[in-house]
Amino acid sequence: MDLIIFTLAVLDGLAYASQVFMVAVGMTLIFGVMRILNIAHGGFYAIGAYLSAGIGLAIASAGLSPWLHLPALVIGAAMAGGVLGLVIERFVLRYIYVKEEVLQLLVTFAIFMILEDVQRLVFGVQPYAASSLVDAMGTINVLGIPYNAYQVLLLPGVAVLTLVGLRWFLHHTLLGHLITATAEDREAATAMGVNANRVFLLTFTIGTVLAALGGAFAAPTTAVQLGMGADMIVLSFAVVVTAGLGQVEGAAVTAVLIGLGRSFAIYLMPELDVLMPYFIMMLVLLVRPNGLFGTVQTRKI
C-alpha cells in the first residue's frame, strides 16, 4: 500500500470517525452518569436528522443561502433534543431509576420503538435529502482526489469542538463537576447535597441534544430514511463499551480506532468492514476489561 493510498485511507477514516463520535458521545455521557444504556438514542439521532433535512429543504425552497443551514440545524437539533430529552426524562425515565438496570434498558427499547413509528407518521416513508450545504461548500483536492469539504473539514472540526467543549464543561464548570461527581458515586454526591434528579435531567438532556446534533450534521451528507436510527445504535453500543464507562475521551479514541479500522478494511479487505467495530471492541476488552479508560467499578457488598 503506497503512501498516497495510505493518506487517503487515513483521511476517509477520520471523516467517518467524526460522525461516529458525534453519535456515540451522547450515549457515553448518559451511560457514565446514569448507568442507563439509552437504546432510544438512535431515535433521537434520526429525529435530529429528519429535522435538519426539513430545515435544509425549507431554506432551499425559500431561496435563502445554504450557509444558513449550518446555524439553523444546530439550533433546531438543540431545541428538538432538548425538548424531547426533558419530556422523556421527566415523565418516563424518572420513574424507573429505582428499578433494575434491565428494566431501565427495556424502557429505552420501548421508547425506541415508539420513536420509529413516530418518525414514519410525522415524516412519511420517502427518503429526504437536503444536500445544498454540502454542494455549497464544494470539494477540495487532496492528492488528486476530490473530497467534500463538508466531510473532511467541517465534520471533524465540529467533532473536535464538541470534544473540547465537553471536556471543558465537565472539568471546569460547576455543573460539569456535579455531573462528574454523580457519575463517580451517586450516593456520596447526594450525601454532599447534590440534587441527583436535576443532574440526571441535565445529563439526559445533554445526551439527547448531542444525539440530535449528530443526526443533524449527518443529514446533509446522506438521504435521511426510515431505519437509520437502528443501525446507529449498535455502533454506538460498541463505542460506549470500548471507551470505558462514561469516558468522553475514550469515546473519541474509540471513534478514531473504528473509523480507521473500517476505512483500512475497505481498502484491504472490503468484506470485513462491518465487522471492524466488533473486532476492535473484543480486542480492547481482552487487554483492558473495563474499556480503554475505564476504572474498576467497586461493588458494594
Binding site: A9, D12, T221, T222, P270
Partner: peptide, 21 residues
C-alpha cells in the same frame, strides 16, 4: 473492484474515494 457495503449505509465516501483513484 467489487464493493458490497452494508444495506442502509449512509456513507459511501471511502468506496467513492477508491473509485476516484
Amino acid at each position: 473492484a467489487e464493493f458490497f457495503p452494508k444495506f442502509g449505509t449512509p456513507d459511501f465516501s471511502t468506496e467513492i474515494t477508491r473509485l476516484l483513484a
